[in-house]
Write a protein that binds this DNA or RNA. Structure first.
Lengths: 240, 240
DNA sequence: CGGCGTATTGAATCAAGTCAATGCGCGTGG
DNA sequence: CCACGCGCATTGACTTGATTCAATACGCCG
């Protein structure tokens, strides 16, 4: 099955996929070195489970070892916004650094495993491992850039272009982890995609069907085949 | 005149407005201490001038001493997105940490002054001033949270609510600098507001007129009086 | 096998966009 | 000093892409 990972193969996989130079994550940090300073706590996650809730005391960052999560911003009147999706090698919780409580929630969309990195210990480790501090800062900056890229997409693209852009982004991220960029399983519901893209789920559904009609992709519920990559890029408004 | 500052009064003003605890900026860092490690270069800015362009080599962070700027994300096909507005005490360029070139552009919307902080020197300073590293990290995290808050607004609010939310945010930020939250001058064109809020300038204009009709504010081009703060909050969809 | 959560599709509606005209202010130069 | 011109803002009329409401279908899990 696509994207499936096992706990046993975990270390090997993490080593196999160094992050790209310009988008350095945590995966290219020596985990064994990190362990000397930070007690790494493993957490099994199941679908629908919260890794942390908005409002809960901020204590740790989390490194996703396997699985797939969404981060959700919550307004006091109940409005909510999916602010991103995270997969293996991504880390979570950094947006809440400097606060007493988490600013958003992180929900697992399938079973997986997250490694908890207590923040006070991380601070100590950052002093001992200069590279770690740089990685953490760079990862925060990258998150800002990702957010800005989506603000650009949502502010300037129509529904079809947003969905096309989203699919290409998902494909790219899967490819980075060594999976196929041409055939993958979406891990989230239409509602989650729609919320993230500032659309309604019916619109996403319709657009997906239309991309299918145009033979740019083939869709069967959550299973996606990219049939015409450059066509999809053209629709997304990208320069080839 | 509202918001006007002079170079001479600069230091005193910066000292007068410590950032709120949960949104620590750079203003509460001892600038004189920082100067021991970082050569702070002053830059005068005039309206329309770029502090830095997207694509230009990344070398420095900037601390806004006076004036008002917008940050603009630029797509390769010409689409652009205003990702935020910055004023005194805010800093700029941090989103490009880890890159060879700036990821976005920063444009001054009025005359002002920015202090350039060369990044390599900042890294050194961070090692010598533990507090500085924490501030920088916290400020990056804060920027992520701000972006998420706007993603929430744009994803869940209609045009009227977005504009109301924007005006309240501007008012709050002016108030934090010691200016009136009830009477202020918008520094940006309708087009910039609209772009930031993922609307068209005609829509923003219409909404402003409507808020005026409803006696929530009075608008005269860029001059805004908040007449009914709680009414405006209600319109923004906030809990009182 | 049944039922619930999720996805698809259609038809009607509407909020915001588009196109276009007019108005206002400010800065420049006669 | 005033007239002119240009950039910005406002407003109206019309269009449209996305939403809303509603019905139906699919598929997984218990």
């Amino acid at each position: 099955m696509i994207m499936q990972t096992t706990v046993a193969s975990t270390r090997a996989q993490a080593a196999r996929y160094p992050a790209a130079e310009h988008e350095a994550g945590f995966t290219d940090i020596d985990i064994d070195l990190l362990r000397k300073y930070v007690p790494v706590l493993r957490h099994k996650l199941s679908a629908g489970q919260y890794l942390y809730h908005a409002g809960q005391p901020f204590q740790s960052l989390y490194l996703i070892n396997s699985g797939f999560l969404k981060t959700v911003e919550l307004a006091d009147d109940g409005r909510d916004q999916v602010t991103g999706f995270r997969m293996r090698g991504d880390f979570l919780g950094a947006e809440s650094i400097g606060l007493k409580t988490y600013a958003c929630g992180a929900v697992s969309l399938e079973s997986g495993e997250a490694w908890e990195l207590p923040y006070p210990a991380m601070l100590t480790a950052c002093r001992e491992i200069p590279e770690l501090q740089a990685r953490l800062t760079a990862a925060l900056a990258q998150e800002i850039r990702d957010d800005h890229a989506w603000m650009l997409a949502i502010g300037t693209l129509n529904a079809e272009q947003r969905v096309a852009t989203f699919l290409l982004d998902v494909a790219k991220r899967y490819a980075r982890l060594g999976y196929s960029a041409r055939h993958f399983m979406l891990r989230m519901r239409r509602t989650d995609m729609a919320n993230f893209l500032a659309l309604k789920h019916e619109t996403v559904s319709r657009v997906m069907s239309r991309l299918d009609d145009l033979r740019l992709i083939s869709v069967e519920r959550r299973e996606v085949h990219v049939l015409d990559d450059s066509g999809l890029r053209a629709m997304a408004g990208m320069r080839v």
